[in-house]
Amino acid sequence: MSIGPPPGDLKNPFRAGAIHAVGAPAIGLFVALMGYGALTRGMGQEFIVMWWAVFTVWSMPALMTFSELAVSGAGMWAIFVAVLFSNLRNIPMVVTALPLVRAEPGIKWRDFVIAQLLSPTVWVHVLVQAPEMPKPPRRRFFTGFAVVIFAAALFGAWVGYAGIEAIPKSIGISILILTPLYLLLIMVSVRQLSGYLALGFGAVAVPWLMQWSVDWGLALGGIGAGTLGFLLGGGYKPRGRT
C-alpha cells in the first residue's frame, strides 16, 4: 500500500474500506492494544473492565490515564477530568475528519459512529485519502476501514492480556515502534506546508512539554505548535492547501 488515492473499486465502499485497513493499519493497532492489554494485566486490572474501557474510551493516551488512575483507586471526578484532558486531541481530529466524510450538510447520527471509531490511524487516512475520493462513498469507506481497525484493537487487547508471555520479548519490543512510525510516514505525505511545520514543531514541543505536565503539556504543545505551523505556513489563507 502506498500513500495516494484509495482503492479504485468503490462499488461496495464499506467492504473496500475494510479491506484497505487489513495490513499495517490493523496490525499496528493490534500490536498497540496488545501492549496495553499486557500492561493492564500487570497492573492487576480486571479483563472485562479493561476491555470495556477500550470499547468505550478508544484512545490510547486516555486509556493509559484511565488504567493508572482506576487501579490506584482514584475517584470518578479525578478520572473524568484526567481522561477529558488526555482526550483533547480528539477534538481537532473529529472537527477535521467529519467535514471530509460528509456527503450532505448538517450533523447526522452517523457522525457519532465515525467520531467514536476515530483513532489517529483512521484520522490520518481520512485527511490524506478522502480528498482523493468522490464524496458519496467516503463515509461508508472510512466506516469499514475504522471498524476493522477497532476490531483488530479489541482482539489485540485480549491477546495481550491473555498471552503476552507466549510472544518472544525481542519481537514484542520491536513491534511497538510500528504504529508511531507508520503514522509519521503517513503524516509526512500531507502535502501542505502548514501541516509539515505543525508536525515538525509538535514533534519537538509536545514531548518536551509533556515532561513538565502530561495533560497540560499535550494541550499547550499541540495548540501552540499547531498555531505556529498554521501561521508560518500560510494556513490562514482561504483554500490554503499551502
Partner: peptide
C-alpha cells in the same frame, strides 16, 4: 488540522 497534526505527531515522537 494543524493542531491535530502537532498533537498526534508529538505523541508519536
Amino acid at each position: 488540522a494543524c493542531v491535530g497534526q502537532a498533537l498526534v505527531g508529538g505523541l508519536m515522537v
